[in-house]
């Protein structure tokens, strides 16, 4: 299944290449905007311009890497009925789909690799302040991203049309991940909301650890592990209920 996901990414390479081009444009735009607003200010919200630009470059690369395709694929297979073959295989359905997503991500990353130097050049990068902390929190953030995508996909078994829901999810999660603005700048209520939601682990938290904006990683790490465990349990529960429903419909 992982290999299928990998090949899937390669088969749709033109769309991924296009995404890479927009990624470069996005990073360039952000760099220009932030440089303009900083002007002669040395730092804001505890971030120097240099750290901020490195943050934005990383956060955008991460948002590409933590993007998930699995809900769209599942949706398509539910509608066309081919989901039957997935369910008939002797391996857990969610595990198959998670494997598919992992392979798909690996394929996208392979295509992204040549673009990374361009992105780093257009954006900006500094040496990592806490490299291992960055990797650990990012990997856990990726796990959360996949778990949430699977949870959204399960909705597809209940509702007929989830295209709009998954688009909405994509927009909201991107915004609250802090891909364009670090969470430190979110004012008032918006800031509290962004802090509580799990999306920050895909963007803000790892990138902020990388540039040294967050120095103590034990707190975020614990909460992240709790999210992974909680979502795991939720997924298992949701699937056992969904599964029964599918069986009833199929019978």
């Amino acid at each position: 299944m992982t290999r299928v996901g990998f090949l899937f990414a390669l088969a749709y390479r033109s769309s991924i290449v296009m995404t890479c081009v927009t990624l470069v444009a996005q990073v360039f735009l952000l760099r220009m905007i932030w440089t303009a607003v900083y002007g002669s200010r040395a730092e804001a919200a505890g971030l120097t311009l240099e750290a901020l630009l490195a943050y934005l470059t990383l956060a955008n690369l991460q948002s590409f890497a933590t993007q998930t395709l699995v809900s769209r694929v599942i949706h398509h297979r539910i509608r066309s009925g081919t989901v039957f073959f997935d369910l008939a295989r002797p391996i857990g359905y969610l595990r198959q789909m998670a494997a598919f997503q992992a392979g798909n991500t690996a394929g996208s990353l392979l295509l992204l690799a040549p673009v990374v130097p361009v992105v780093l050049l257009v954006g900006s990068i500094t040496a990592p302040v806490n490299g291992p902390g960055y990797v650990v929190t990012l990997v856990l953030g990726y796990v959360i991203a996949v778990q949430l995508a699977l949870l959204i996909s399960l909705l597809g078994f209940w509702m007929l049309e989830i295209g709009a829901v998954s688009l909405l999810y994509q927009l909201v999660s991107q915004f609250f991940a802090g891909t364009m603005v670090p969470l430190a700048f979110f004012p008032g209520f918006l800031g509290t909301l962004a802090e509580v939601l799990p999306f920050k682990y895909m963007g803000y938290v790892p990138a902020a650890i990388y540039v040294g904006h967050i120095s103590d990683i034990s707190g975020p790490l614990l909460v992240e592990l709790a999210w992974v465990a909680g979502l795991w349990a939720l997924l298992a529960l949701a699937w056992s209920r969904t599964h029964r429903r599918v069986v009833i419909q199929g019978g």
Partner: peptide
């Protein structure tokens, strides 16, 4: 469909609004 268009653009402007909350001038 209409709503998703509006929200898409809404989040685009929300970015500007958040940035300009801290920096009054671009």
């Amino acid at each position: 469909g209409v709503l998703s268009g509006a929200i898409w653009q809404g989040t685009g402007f929300a970015f500007i609004w958040v940035v300009m909350h801290t920096f009054p001038s671009l």
